[in-house]
């Protein structure tokens, strides 16, 4: 008997993106808005309390603009650092640990494309949540240059998100591992950046996350050294950290291809 040739099939991955977005909304967006909204509220309340206490003090009023920018920078810095970790936590690890990969990847579906799309959907979700938070924050206090905010958010997502993506491809404790790794990076740069001998090379194993935080100053247009001068974009450190994130993302894709999807 002649068996007809098997027609090639493809998962409707773009359509499935709608379901991924829905999962993000339910599982991440709501809690992110609550969590980061609360932090923003506390920052605004603190600034309000200081204003009330100053009672028109001229020096305070003169410095109010800078203080508002600092407040915004604090909120932005938290979201740009913690937000990608919250947004991407469990992206691969959860499907693996819970066994969801078994049904997913019996379909005509490439895991790399599936998780790359998931990464992009989460990036869009991260921006959408940021939009809601910025709108809410902007109702009470100015939020600064939106273009810089968008660039800062994107850089943070790629830099920290790339590390988390790799961690998620390698371990089920991806969020924890990423936080530990970033803390270690901060410590390594703080302790050994100016060291001599072999130890001075240790920081170069890690992304310079401490220096990357200068992006936050740039977003809020705060120059920590000269209040009157414009903030400088830390191009070198940004390039390094973002390249590190992209490299981790690519390594994560390789790990996804090479590692067993399930354990028997």
């Amino acid at each position: 008997m002649t068996v007809p040739a098997l027609p090639r099939r493809r998962a409707r991955l773009l359509r499935y993106g709608g379901w991924q977005a829905r999962d993000y909304l339910i599982n991440v967006a709501v809690i992110s808005i609550g969590l980061f909204g609360l932090m923003g509220t506390l920052e605004i309340m603190q600034l309000g309390a200081m204003e009330a206490m100053a009672m028109g003090n001229r020096a305070f009023v003169a410095n109010l603009g800078r203080m508002r920018a600092q407040s915004f920078m604090h909120v932005f810095a938290i979201y740009a650092t913690v937000g990608p970790i919250v947004a991407l936590s469990g992206i691969i690890a959860n499907d693996r640990a819970m066994g969801y990969v078994r049904f997913l990847f019996a379909k005509p579906l490439n895991p790399l494309l599936f998780y790359l799309q998931s990464f992009l959907v989460r990036l869009a979700g991260y921006f959408a949540v940021a939009g809601v938070l910025l709108a809410a924050y902007g109702y009470f206090d100015p939020v600064g240059d939106l273009e810089r905010v968008a660039v800062g958010l994107l850089l943070g997502f790629v830099a920290y998100g790339g590390v988390l993506f790799l961690a998620s491809a390698l371990t089920k404790y991806d969020g924890l591992v990423t936080v530990a790794f970033l803390l270690l990076a901060t410590l390594a740069w703080g302790k050994w950046e100016t060291a001599t001998g072999v130890r001075r090379f240790i920081p170069y194993l890690f992304p310079p996350v401490g220096k990357f935080s200068d992006v936050n100053n740039w977003v809020a247009n705060l120059n920590p050294f000269d209040p009157r001068a414009p903030a400088v974009f830390p191009g070198k450190w940004v390039a390094w950290t973002v390249c590190y994130g992209v490299a981790c993302l690519l390594l994560g894709l390789v790990a996804l291809r090479k590692r067993a999807l399930v354990k028997a």
Binding site: A11, L13, Y16, N27, G99, Y100, R102, F103, K107
Partner: peptide, 30 residues
């Protein structure tokens, strides 16, 4: 081409609804 596979432990996210779960799998099945 995909294959039909029923695993020993049926692992589907608990927060999905039956019909929606099948719609998702149908899209992924092509």
């Amino acid at each position: 081409y995909g294959i039909g596979y029923l695993s020993e432990l049926v692992a589907i996210p608990p927060s999905w609804r039956t019909e929606n779960a099948l719609r998702r799998f149908a899209l992924l099945a092509g």
